[in-house]
Design a binder for these strands. Structure first.
Lengths: 189, 189
DNA sequence: AGGCTTACCTAGAGGTCCTAGGCAAATTAT
DNA sequence: ATAATTTGCCTAGGACCTCTAGGTAAGCCT
């Protein structure tokens, strides 16, 4: 067991898989060390501490999410693009619950700037090119869209929608219709 | 130090204050015991375990939030009520960050049913009486509103809106305008 | 081959969670 | 008023997690 071939990247990848299995809050240095068959202390050559590991995981997840969303909206525009964006976002959250939780960490502004967080805004802004929106309404709309998508999947996962028989899927589709019609009619009061 | 007068309720209250001070994820049995000047083990006569404590905290916060929202919308209707609801919701999240985090815990369905979670839906439903909405659109709209409110304050707290100069307050007001106009025009496609 | 770096180790301190079992004060029963 | 019971907090200790200090052994470089 001389060399397990650990690197910060391999640790982060494994941590991401672990997060999806056991939940983001259960990603520990110990569990990760067990997974590689090494002692806890060995990981501290590659990561500064447990928080550092979580931040790396968050940055990884943000980049993955941005990639998947970018792929899904390529070649689409208008409502098509909006729906593709939203579905890609929601699908990622469902398929990678631990990774998605990681994206919700509060990151240092500098780290956040380096990460894919900016790419998210850019892509949302690209969506809005299909609608007749200009600053500052564009930023307001981006924030509204992001809030609604995040809020929906977040509440969905927390079980907040289970108390009513109305299908979660049906409400989701209806929500996308509503957002589309909202954006088209934006020049409000 | 014979009797510190501990009860489950006093522990929950103190845990809520602690959460607002140091963050929900840092509410530990140990820290709570320290606050009362007793040993960790003493708390286990009043709470089953750490998770139980967090659930009690969540139920407390949900009830408080429901109360404050209920008070704020009393006597209002239409957009007035919508704005009052949203502002009360957001204000609670800002003033009680730890408590608000607690409200986002995934609760057992039975516990959630017993808690104030139902009151939230009822109140949101009351808001919609000012608009011309019936099932199942009503439920869809409730979910949309709840998602947007939660998503907004959640992203706001995570610092997701800091990267752009547009004021967070201005976007919030604009978001409320947008939701009001959306609800008035709901009968969509 | 000698020196340096890398990758992992042991040892150990300190924190959190939680159980088992105990004692003494407060409450209730007689 | 005293006895029985319950309540409230205790000590002791195991299990797990975080992280530091210091060490060894393997691989790389000249």
């Amino acid at each position: 067991m001389a060399h397990a071939g650990l690197t910060a990247d391999r640790l982060t990848q494994a941590a991401a898989d672990l997060a999806d299995e056991v939940g983001f809050e259960n990603v520990t240095v110990s569990a990760l060390a067990r997974h590689f068959g090494v002692k806890d202390a060995s990981l501290y050559s590659h990561i500064r501490n447990a928080q550092d590991l979580r931040v790396r995981l968050a940055v990884l997840a943000l980049a993955e999410l941005a990639d998947q969303v970018a792929e899904s909206i390529a070649g689409r525009s208008g409502k098509d693009a909006l729906v593709a964006f939203a579905n890609a976002y929601r699908r990622y959250a469902h398929e990678h619950p631990g990774r998605y939780s990681a994206t919700q960490m509060a990151l240092d502004p500098d780290i956040a700037a380096d990460s894919a967080a900016g790419k998210h805004s850019e892509m949302t802004r690209a969506i809005l090119r299909g609608y007749d929106l200009w600053e500052p309404d564009q930023t307001d709309a981006i924030r509204l869209l992001h809030s609604t998508f995040h809020g929906y999947v977040s509440l969905e996962r927390a079980g907040a929608f289970h108390s009513h028989p109305r299908g979660v899927e049906a409400s989701w589709l209806r929500t996308l219709d509503a957002l589309d019609s909202l954006l088209r009619a934006w020049p409000l009061g």
